[in-house]
Amino acid sequence: MTIGEYTYGGNQWEYGYSSAEFADGKVYGSIEPNIFKGSKITSLAVGQSVDPSSQMILLHILWISFSIGLSQSTIKLTINNSTYTLNPVEGNTYYYIELPTNDSSLILWMQSQVGKTIPVIIQ
């Protein structure tokens, strides 16, 4: 995956891959292959939301989304030698895990890799 950067609302950041159908008609980053279990990957990203007044971190989230639902009960992503187990929502087209707000290591690492290609294992 080649990491792109997407900011919106002035207080939210996303690092990873988002396709045009997922990110306001623009493509951020790239992913190869872009199909998993017969469904197109529409995003694979880590995001951060910050309170605009206090600048406190509100949320870190890692997610992957697909064009059609999967029959997977969970999705495992291995990024930077760490494996994360993501849970489904929205008819199994979207899988996510909320990361601890006091652990910025994944989002900082992804941010440092913008424009670079990294290996990602999806299971």
Score class of each variant (00 low, 15 high):
Gln123Cys: 04
Lys26Ala: 00
Glu32Ile: 13
Gly10Lys: 07
Ile79Asp: 02
Ser73Ile: 07
Glu14Cys: 02
Ser112Pro: 01
Ala23Thr: 08
Gln55Ile: 06
Gln12Arg: 15
Ile121Gly: 09
Leu70Thr: 00
Ala45Glu: 11
Tyr95Ser: 14
Ile79Asn: 03
Gln111Glu: 11
Leu62Phe: 04
Thr83Ile: 04
Ser49Tyr: 09
Thr101Phe: 12
Asn80Pro: 03
Thr42Val: 09
Ile97Glu: 14
Ile79Glu: 00
Ile68Thr: 15
Ile75Pro: 08
Trp109Met: 07
Tyr6Leu: 13
Gln111Cys: 00
Ile118Trp: 05
Gly69Val: 02
Ile3His: 01
Val89Arg: 15
Gly16Asn: 01
Met1Pro: 12
Phe22Lys: 10
Lys76Cys: 07
Val120Asp: 02
Ser65Arg: 08
Tyr17His: 09
Gly16Ala: 07
Ala20Asp: 01
Ala20His: 02
Ile35Leu: 00
Ala45Val: 07
Ala23Lys: 10
Glu21Gln: 11
Leu59Cys: 06
Gln111His: 10
Ser30Ala: 13
Ser112Gly: 11
Ile121His: 13
Thr83Phe: 04
Met56Ile: 11
Thr42Ser: 09
Lys40Asp: 11
Ser82Asp: 00
Ile97Ala: 12
Ile64Glu: 01
Glu5Asn: 02
Ile107Glu: 05
Pro119Trp: 03
Ser82Gln: 00
Thr2Glu: 11
Leu62Lys: 05
Pro100Glu: 15
Ile41Leu: 12
Val89Thr: 15
Val120Pro: 07
Ile79Met: 03
Asp103Trp: 14
Ile75Asn: 03
Leu77Asp: 07
Glu21Arg: 06
Asn87Cys: 03
Ser105Lys: 12
Glu32His: 13
Gly16Trp: 03
Lys40Gly: 05
Asp24Glu: 07
Trp13Thr: 10
Tyr6Trp: 14
Tyr17Lys: 07
Trp109Ser: 06
Leu99Gln: 11
Ile97Arg: 09
Pro88Gln: 06
Val27Glu: 08
His60Tyr: 01
Thr93Trp: 09
Gly29Thr: 04
Phe36Trp: 12
Leu58Tyr: 01
Pro100Trp: 13
Ile3Tyr: 00
Ser53Phe: 14
Trp109Glu: 08
Gly25Asp: 05
Ile122Lys: 06
Leu86Asn: 06
Thr7Gly: 04
Val27Tyr: 01
Ser112Phe: 03
Ser18Pro: 00
Thr42Glu: 08
Thr117Gln: 09
Ile61Cys: 08
Asn11Tyr: 09
Tyr6Asn: 12
Ser54Phe: 00
Gly29Gln: 05
Val120Tyr: 08
Trp109Thr: 07
Ile64Pro: 05
Asn11Trp: 03
Pro119Gln: 09
Asn11Pro: 05
Glu90Ser: 12
Phe66Glu: 10
Leu62Gly: 02
Ile121Gln: 14
Gln55Ser: 15
Val50Gly: 04
Gln72Thr: 10
Pro33Gly: 12
Asn87Arg: 02
Glu90Gly: 06
Asp103Ile: 12
Val114Asn: 08
Ile35His: 00
Gln55Thr: 13
Thr2His: 04
Asn11Thr: 05
Ile41Phe: 11
Glu98Tyr: 15
Leu62Trp: 03
Leu58Glu: 13
Thr93Val: 14
Lys26Gln: 03
Trp13Cys: 06
Asn11Met: 02
Leu77Met: 10
Asn92Pro: 00
